[in-house]
Write a protein that binds this DNA or RNA. Sequence first.
RNA 1: GAUUUCGUAGCUCAGCUGGUAGAGCAAUACACUUUUAAUGUAUGGGCCCUGGGUUCGAGUCCCAGCGGAAUCACCA
Length: 539
Amino acid sequence: MRPSGMHLIFLISHKPYIPYFCSHIYKKHYIQLIMQTTLSEQELVRREKLSRLQAAGIDPYPAPLYPVTHHSADIKAAFTEENKEAFSKVCVAGRIVSINDKGKVFFIKIQDSKGIFQLYVKRDELCPDEDKSFWENVVKHGLDLGDIIGATGYVFITKTGETSLHTETITLLSKSLKPLPVVKRDEDGNVHDAVTDPEFRYRQRYADLIVTDGVKETFVKITKMKNAIREYLNQQGALEVDTPVLQSIPGGAAARPFITHHNALDIPLYLRIANELYLKRLIVGGFDFVYEFSRNFRNEGMDRTHNPEFTVLEFYVAYKDYYWMMETTEQMLEKVALATNDTTVAKVGENEINFKAPYARVSIYDAIKEHTGFDISEMDEAGLRDVCKQLNIPVAPSMGRGKLIDEIFGEKCESNYIQPTFIIDYPIEMSPLTKKHRTKAGLVERFELMVNGKEVANAYSELNDPIEQRERFEDQLSLMERGDDEAMFIDHDFLRALEYGMPPTAGIGFGIDRLAMMLTGQSSIQDVLFFPQMRPEKG
RNA sequence: GAUUUCGUAGCUCAGCUGGUAGAGCAAUACACUUUUAAUGUAUGGGCCCUGGGUUCGAGUCCCAGCGGAAUCACCA
């Protein structure tokens, strides 16, 4: 039978802040969450330890800065018996990840931002006098896995050969009240009892970062990748810009938007599905080369390659065309891959993908001919429907010629392009913002970059004829009337901008999360987003 | 949205054809002054996801719900 204390309810002393717009249901849910948090045995033990530390005059959450001088990995890399003088006064800090209690000696491993480092903590060193209360109260009975501590001392190498800190002082910097999952690593580097539950890992990414090997490294790589992209573009003279996330007309892509409401204006607003139309307005305004890492929002399904919010890098360059853009793309990706992984080859599952330029260029008609045997270049909508039927591809009546071709390609061709490949010259119906092909009737100057069977980038010679752009928008409108809920709206302000005159321009959008997946070898988008979208936790 | 599958201690996981729960790590206590997945001894810890049903009896079987994952559909 548990003592009643085990059922302690964690009460908050002040009134919880509940946002005024919360519905009654959310309010109820929120209060339940706070009031019904029952503590586990171990959580209670930690709270008791906290009280005992405070009673002993130790502040478990001290305010002053802690003068850290070294990081774990730096000491391990630099320390030798010969230069030990340089490590005679060292101050480190980190989270306790293991405590090995040897009686009057503790081996405590702390994890800092660069790795794990061992503290050798001897009772008579910390408490040289008769008074051993600090040892008893803090080291022996006050510390837990997960606590953040600081330590000073000198570096040495133990009998077993591990570079360690001979500890002279220990300071508790933050008491941990919630036990972390315990993951053990043996001397061969094998991990035991790793946390594999995706729900835990994604919901509590903070804990995942502490406990799961390689997670931090993945995100560091992603930042490197983005930095390399910025560096490349900045060197080309590009200007990084910001454009609206809240838009009254969600344009630039075919997708279902999230809708929200602006109270003061009393109008609906949409979270952007793309930033394309705004970047082109800036080209009209006289910038030659602009880019933006655009967080886009699409109200569609989610799975291992789709998150409701995701990042697209778009850039637009005046006086260029899509051929120029292909060259720029392959040059940039080669450099970015190299900067991220020190090699142009990325391993994704079974496949080795080489980002070294140049990449193959295949027209979409050739791709379809190669993988299905059908030459559809001259076919009308009825012919395409017949081909889809023969290929067992389900189609909807709302689909026009362009969409049908897209279906055939997506179904039968896309997955075959493992190495980076430009698929070029798309049918006009599926590209309402793209310039007509200079020589091939019915096609536009557009390419998609396929890598590992997935679309990574989409680019074109931008349509800058305002009259034709208006007609293309109107075609979209008729698609909408046929029932295509992803067809584009007419953006009159964008048309007005084009009427002032936009130089010939090449533009591209990169799926940054997908690129991140490939360059870090992850197979799900959740593993390249710190906080992937999840269903709300139940109360 | 559809199908399949999973949900047991803080963590990783056992639990057979139904008989009201086990291990390792973590926790608590003790021992051990250079350990390394430390060790030894002892102890505590479970609304077996939730709600129904079948049954003398359900962690186990059935139904519904919640949550996760995989596959498919839509999309990047």
